[in-house]
């Protein structure tokens, strides 16, 4: 509780938000705030200014193109994703969102906020990497697109640089996806997770085992466990899991996610 002093701005357009972020070195974008506000309560981070993105209609909405590509505004909430008819084109999205935290958090937390915080225990970073999402980042010089694989740079660190904003995420068509996780209790803090997509070969992205999602590929679900072992993971140890246990879970969960994907 009890944040440090902070300035607050609520821009009405993305361009204005970008200006505010560029002009104030200590400014941070405030999306759903379901992570950032908690970090600020702990005073582990204390931005000088919060640029509230909640007034930016440009960043909301889900569109489904004729080729099956989904374009999701960064400020789309988990609940919106779960309920969207368009988002059903890639069913795994809504399914995973339904297991994030709880109703209240899902009502406010956003897909953009989730990936931009890149907490290694979040579900969406590995999912985005596995299904080949592409992130559009806006800055003073216009927009650029970054594949999810290159988007996540480190713990709490992404390709979104100072003065920039993630504006939307595009996701290619596909249905054969899977996801598996071990959490503290049902839908609690994540210990290890794995997202898989099958498109001929199997593509896995593992979460909680490194600072960024780790990609592993295999010819079939049956080869996933060996592929994970061959990746020589060195996950961190913490109070919930040792490095050894996480390494083990990674192989098990990757296989389960791959099997789920293959079975669709």
């Amino acid at each position: 509780m009890l944040l440090r002093e902070v300035e607050y701005a609520k821009p009405g357009a993305v361009a204005e938000a970008l200006q505010l972020l560029a002009a104030n070195e200590g400014a941070r974008a405030l999306a759903g705030g379901q992570t950032l506000v908690n970090v600020m309560k702990a005073r582990a981070a204390s931005p000088d200014m919060l640029v509230d993105l909640n007034g930016l209609e440009e960043l909301r909405g889900i569109e489904l193109a004729g080729d099956g590509t989904l374009t999701i505004g960064a400020m789309t909430t988990y609940t919106e994703l779960m309920r969207s008819a368009e988002a059903k084109a890639r069913p795994i999205l809504g399914e995973v969102c339904a297991t994030i935290a709880d109703v209240q958090v899902r009502n406010r937390g956003t897909i953009g906020g989730n990936v931009c915080s890149n907490d290694p225990t979040n579900h969406l970073p590995p999912l985005m990497v596995a299904i080949g999402a592409r992130m559009t980042i806006a800055g003073a010089d216009g927009e650029r697109e970054v594949p999810a694989e290159d988007f996540f740079l480190g713990v709490y660190l992404t390709a979104v640089g100072p003065g920039e904003l993630l504006t939307r995420i595009s996701i290619p068509a596909g249905k054969k996806d899977g996801f598996a996780a071990v959490t503290l209790g049902a839908e609690g803090t994540c210990i290890c997770n794995a997202a898989a997509t099958v498109n001929g070969a199997v593509r896995i992205a593992l979460g909680c085992v490194d600072a960024v999602p780790v990609v592993v590929t295999a010819d079939s679900a049956g080869g996933v466990a060996d592929a994970v072992r061959a990746a020589n993971l060195t996950p961190p140890s913490d109070v919930h899991a040792s490095s050894e246990y996480r390494t083990h879970l990674a192989a098990v969960l990757a296989t389960r996610a791959a099997e789920e994907a293959a079975a669709r």
């Binding site: 709880d102 209790g185 049902a186 839908e187």
Partner: peptide, 8 residues
């Protein structure tokens, strides 16, 4: 990190 039981 201190996980108390939730409804589920």
């Amino acid at each position: 990190d201190y996980h108390v039981p939730h409804a589920l």
